[in-house]
């Protein structure tokens, strides 16, 4: 089980790399924003898998809840900014 979870962790890191490619390469700013959202979802999952791997889920789960809430604030602010920028 430990080995399997480690493989899952590495695979998730590689997937984050795929999203990072989109963030770095994206033709428009919205592609970057989208990649950022994908990265944060992966990071939430990665944290929980990490918690299972260390068998200390009670510590890691709180950070992932915090991530999920903060991600909303950051992304909404970003989307709102981009919306207003084009209007003015």
């Amino acid at each position: 089980m430990k080995v399997f979870l480690f493989c899952v962790l590495v695979l998730l890191a590689i997937l984050i790399g795929a999203y990072l490619y989109r963030v770095l390469q994206g033709p428009t700013i919205f592609d970057r924003l989208l990649g950022h959202n994908g990265i944060s979802t992966k990071a939430i999952i990665l944290l929980i898998v990490m918690g299972i791997y260390f068998e200390r889920v009670d510590m890691f789960i709180d950070i992932s809840i915090g991530y999920a809430l903060l991600n909303l604030v950051g992304s909404l602010a970003m989307a709102k900014y981009l919306e207003q920028k084009e209007h003015s």
């Binding site: 428009t28 919205f30 924003l33 989208l34 959202n37 979802t41 939430i44 809840i65 999920a68 809430l69 991600n71 909303l72 992304s75 909404l76 989307a79 709102k80 981009l82 919306e83 920028k85 084009e86 209007h87």
Partner: peptide, 22 residues
């Protein structure tokens, strides 16, 4: 939380893209 918040984020992103004329 993921099920409630992620559609909101996706919708906000796409709406910003549409309103800014993409």
């Amino acid at each position: 939380l993921l099920y409630i918040l992620n559609p909101v984020i996706a919708h906000a992103t796409v709406r910003a893209a549409l309103r800014s004329g993409l």
